[in-house]
Write a protein that binds this DNA or RNA. Structure first.
Length: 226
DNA sequence: GCATTAACCACAG
DNA sequence: CTGTGGTTAATGC
C-alpha cells in the first residue's frame, strides 16, 4: 500500500495545480490510481459511492438507465473529473461511467476532496468552473436532441468526435452502432442507414468504425438544420 | 389522402 | 455485430 505521489504526477488537473505541498500530500494519501480497459465499469448506477474520480487519460461514457433502455448521457474525455455531482449530490450513483477507450483514473476519497474544497479556494474555483461548463454543455446537447431530427443529431455527434474528441476529420469510432444509437437517441438500424446516406452524399467516408469527414461544411449545415 | 420520418422486426452475412 | 428490406405508426402538408 504505497501512496501515490500526486506532487510529481505529470497529469495533474488544473485544479490540483493550485494545491500546496501539504495539500498534495493529503491528496496522495487518499488517492488510488487504476487502469480501465474498454467496456470496464468505473462506477455503477445504484451503487454507493464515496469517491470522486479524476480521469487522467482516456475516454468514458456516462450512462443512465431510462424507463425503456440505457441512455448514453454523454462522452467525457480526459482530463476531467467524474462523479462530482453524483457523489456530492447523493449517497448513491445516479449514473454509471464505463471506459470506452483504455483509461487511467484516480479515485479520491470524498472527505479528502471536500477538505481540499474548503481549504483551497483556487482549487474549488477550478472545480466549479468545470461543473458549470458541463452543465452548459448538457443544456446545449439537450436542446439539440429534442429539437433536431435524427439526421442532424447524428451529424452533430460525428462533428463532436472530429472537433472535440479527436481533433481530426478522420478517426476510429470508439463505439459500435448500438452505442452510437444510444448516444444519438435512435435505433441501431437508423444509424446504419443514415451513415450509408451520408456516404452516398459523399459527406463522409465510412469503413467499419473508421470515419473520414469529407465535407465538414455540409455536415455542419445538417447538424444545425436537423 | 399522400409523403416523410423513424421505430420495430426479421433475416443474412 | 452490421446492413437491409418490409411493415407500421405518427406527423405534417
Amino acid at each position: 500500500m504505497s501512496n501515490n505521489f500526486c506532487s510529481v504526477c505529470l497529469l495533474k488537473s488544473k485544479a490540483v495545480k493550485n494545491l500546496q505541498n501539504s495539500e498534495l500530500d493529503l491528496l496522495g494519501e487518499s488517492c488510488v490510481q487504476a487502469i480501465f480497459e474498454p467496456g470496464e465499469t468505473i462506477f455503477k448506477q445504484g451503487a454507493l459511492s464515496s469517491n470522486i474520480i479524476y480521469l487522467q487519460t482516456g475516454l468514458v461514457k456516462l450512462t443512465i438507465k431510462g424507463p425503456h433502455r440505457v441512455q448514453i448521457m454523454r462522452l467525457k474525455k480526459a482530463p476531467s473529473y467524474l462523479g462530482v455531482p453524483t457523489t456530492m449530490g447523493d449517497k448513491i450513483n445516479h449514473y454509471s461511467a464505463v471506459a470506452v477507450e483504455r483509461s487511467s483514473a484516480c479515485f479520491i476519497d470524498i472527505n479528502t476532496f471536500k477538505e481540499l474544497l474548503k481549504v483551497n479556494p483556487a482549487f474549488s474555483y477550478e472545480i466549479m468552473l468545470e461543473l458549470c461548463r458541463n452543465e452548459l454543455e448538457q443544456y446545449q446537447r439537450c436542446v439539440k436532441l429534442v429539437q433536431n431530427q435524427v439526421y442532424g443529431r447524428l451529424a452533430t455527434n460525428l462533428l463532436i468526435f472530429s472537433e472535440e474528441i479527436y481533433n481530426s476529420n478522420e478517426y476510429d469510432l470508439p463505439l459500435n452502432r448500438n452505442d452510437l444509437a444510444d448516444l444519438v437517441c435512435t435505433s441501431r438500424e437508423t444509424v446504419s442507414r443514415l451513415l450509408a446516406d451520408l456516404t452516398q452524399e459523399e459527406i463522409i467516408e465510412v469503413n467499419g468504425k473508421h470515419i473520414r469527414i469529407l465535407d465538414t461544411e455540409r455536415l455542419q449545415t445538417i447538424s444545425e438544420k436537423g
